[in-house]
Design a protein around this nucleic acid. Structure first.
Lengths: 190, 190
DNA sequence: CCGAAAATGTAGCAGTCGCTACATGATCGG
DNA sequence: CCGATCATGTAGCGACTGCTACATTTTCGG
């Protein structure tokens, strides 16, 4: 029993290191041996603790999402919904959310074609994420009966903006986000 | 010279088959031998005609994007911007755009972490795509001086919605798209 | 019909993949 | 201090990767 506790600690320790590595080097194309070497262990041990590559990937995606969710939950509510959406976009582009969202995007794009475990873990992650977003929007003063609707719009749209961050010019995207924020505010005030 | 023309035809023929295969089986994890076997050739010939895996992938992403762009350009303009956005969303979920956008999403997510040739080819694809979107929105009656701004909002947001299509319930997303369409219409009419 | 060039087949190389069998070291309850 | 369980190192398996050298067939201008 105590041995199990010990192993859990070690697994947790490894997971944190793996997440850190994936945040920097990406999820797509992740393989065990280079990963293990980078964090000072062996593929043998990663499989021993996690059971296999798939389980490790699932744990990484879930953990990265936890970090994102925690970051949103730690945000101070803005004074209104429009300002809140702008604040969200600002948070999206800063660490730790920026890298965590990139992991999410990579996992979501992979899960898009039905590949497991990406599909399942992304589903679960998205639910937690959506709930956190809705709570924040509610805290910004949105009517509770419309917060979910606003969260749906903001969630999908901001993810899209974040994806385009790599190809578009940031200042152009900023006008798009501003328009989105106004729209969200209008729904809240309707 | 005529020989070169012939080889170009063969390359074109192969590319079309490769795109068709990728549309069904995804871009992430694509490898030459299973791909070649599926379309009745050999990895040897794919490399011979395209030069290497990277060039083949770049050609596939560009071609899939061409199909998406052509689909948008073939759309009848809607009577106003709001209706146009709804029509775009409808087109997003039907073939050929649905599968082509999934390829784009997979390439974009891969290019997000700087991987070539994904990064470059996605950049180029996005420019063509954005231009087609802006033209369509203009054709729907948006003031030319604001069409670009609307296209920025709609482009990023709809891509986000499409990504969430795999995890969220479609009817919930539909309300989000409806809200987006109203917002786009409001900007056009402002 | 011939010779060059293009196209394709055959076979394989060096490297990586996830994973596992086996043995050893570490830890700890009894 | 002993035996059991956990943790880790070593070595390697079979499969797959992109790619290439070499030989062959096919095509087509002259």
């Amino acid at each position: 029993m105590i041995g199990i506790m010990k192993s859990m600690d070690r697994k947790e320790e490894l997971l944190e290191q793996v997440v850190e590595h994936v945040l920097e080097h990406g999820l797509i194309g992740l393989t065990l041996r280079p990963l293990a070497a980078a964090i000072g262990t062996s593929d043998r041990m990663l499989i021993y603790h996690f059971g296999g590559r798939d389980e490790l990937v699932a744990a990484v995606v879930a953990r990265a999402n936890d970090h994102s969710v925690a970051a949103v939950k730690s945000m101070e509510p803005a004074e209104d919904v429009r300002t809140g959406v702008e604040a969200l976009w600002h948070a999206y582009r800063e660490e730790p959310m920026h890298s965590c969202l990139q992991i999410y995007l990579q996992a979501a794009a992979t899960g898009l074609i039905g590949m497991e475990p990406y599909r399942s873990v992304v589903r679960a992650a998205n639910e937690l994420w959506y709930a956190a977003l809705r709570d924040y929007i509610t805290a910004c003063g949105a009517p509770p009966e419309r917060a979910g609707r606003i969260a749906t719009l903001v969630d999908s749209s901001l993810i899209g903006f974040h994806l385009d961050l790599a190809t578009d010019r940031p200042d152009e995207l900023a006008t798009g986000v501003a328009d989105l924020a106004v729209a969200a505010g209008a729904i809240a005030a309707a």
